[in-house]
Design a protein around this nucleic acid. Structure first.
Length: 347
DNA sequence: GCAAATGATTAGAC
DNA sequence: GTCTAATCATTTGC
């Protein structure tokens, strides 16, 4: 039996029509004499069913008329009875929700990044750490630092503005719904618990929107951090002297261009770069040389000449008293110029 | 603005 | 762990 049927049965019972009376000529007479209340109930139900199809003003007038109807208390009590029965079936279903782990995670992250919670320098610690990790100069890092803080502050500002908007919208909507329910409670039974439940539903809906906001904010912070931390974006070409030192070593060890750890350290010191940068440089150089020996031929010759000249100078200084050899003869005798066309044997 | 050069990162092999 | 090969992201030179 659905609610409407139940309601009708209840109301029929209320009007005094008993099942046992059906078919009895007396009862028909009784029915006819009691026909007025039954018709009233029927009218009321028709009016209630039609109320949603009417315009706001018509509905408002209809509501007023129904509220003043002489059968309204009886109808209301039946509705209360039905409601009581149906509420019983869903009672206990609504439990207190445990805190959402996803929201907790986002909250923690926003707090750690200095976006939510009290302002504490807008993640300056993170900026400083990132600057240190990126290995930039003090000036560079301070510029980046302030830039990072400014952008984080911007995110923070947007986040709080949006959060405030959501909270305001949530409370406005909740008030609106509560007012509606209170008004409706004049015509249908609505318990405070039901209102509470409705408020909880609204809050859950708004908290899911809030979670989206938190998620987007976290993503924005992550992007900012990655942009700030990504060393590739801070790439600076090595200075000319450093490149020359590295190239000299590379071309003078072309048959085995794999510097030892000690050699790497020494090269790093000479060039003012890190050992891993030296390793990167040699890794790139080896692969690029191997891929296109022809292209590097000129460079190889150039450094071969340079090495030979240096060697000749050292040799000249050593044998200054005797007959000094010319740089050109040294180059020729070293055979370095001609060595490169054959190419090195890279593993 | 575009292509080339270049330093850094990554996955996979050893 | 290092090395290669591929790739990315930036800088440089035109």
């Amino acid at each position: 039996m659905d609610d409407q049927t139940r309601m009708l049965t209840g109301l029929t019972g209320l009007a005094g029509l008993q099942q046992a009376d059906v078919g009895d000529p007396d009862s028909v007479r009784k029915q006819q004499s009691l026909g007025q209340p039954q018709q009233d109930i029927g009218d009321i139900l028709q009016q209630i069913m039609a109320i949603t199809d009417e315009s706001l003003d018509e509905a408002q007038a209809r509501k007023h008329a129904l509220n003043c109807h002489r059968m309204k208390p009886a109808l209301f009590s039946v509705l209360c009875e039905i409601k009581e029965k149906t509420v019983l079936s869903i009672r206990g279903v609504q439990e207190e929700d445990p805190p959402d782990p996803q929201i907790m995670r986002l909250d923690n992250m926003l707090l750690a990044e200095g976006v939510s919670g009290p302002e504490k320098g807008g993640g300056s610690a993170a900026a400083a750490a990132a600057a240190a990790a990126a290995g930039g100069s003090p000036t560079d890092s301070s510029i980046e630092h302030s830039d990072y803080r400014a952008k984080l502050a911007q995110i923070r500002q947007i986040y709080h503005a949006e959060l405030e908007k959501y909270e305001q919208a949530c409370s406005e909507f909740t008030n609106h719904v509560m007012n509606l329910l209170r008004e409706q409670s004049r015509t249908r039974p609505i318990s405070p618990k039901e209102i509470e439940r409705m408020v909880a539903i609204i809050h859950r809906k708004f908290s899911s929107i809030q979670m989206q906001l938190k998620q987007s904010t976290c993503e924005a912070v992550m992007i900012l951090r990655s942009r700030f931390l990504d060393a590739r974006r801070k790439r600076r070409n090595f200075n000319k002297q450093a490149t020359e030192v590295l190239n000299e070593y590379f071309y003078s060890h072309l048959s085995n261009p794999y510097p030892s750890e000690e050699a790497k350290e020494e090269l790093a010191k000479k060039c003012g770069i890190t050992v891993s940068q030296v390793s990167n440089w040699f890794g790139n150089k080896r692969i690029r040389y191997k891929k296109n020996i022809g292209k590097f031929q000129e460079e190889a010759n150039l450094y071969a000449v340079k090495t030979a000249v240096d060697a000749a100078n050292v040799s000249a200084q050593a044998s200054q008293a005797n007959s000094p050899a010319t740089p050109n003869s040294a180059i020729i005798s070293s055979g370095l110029v001609c060595r490169c066309p054959d190419g090195p044997v890279l593993p």
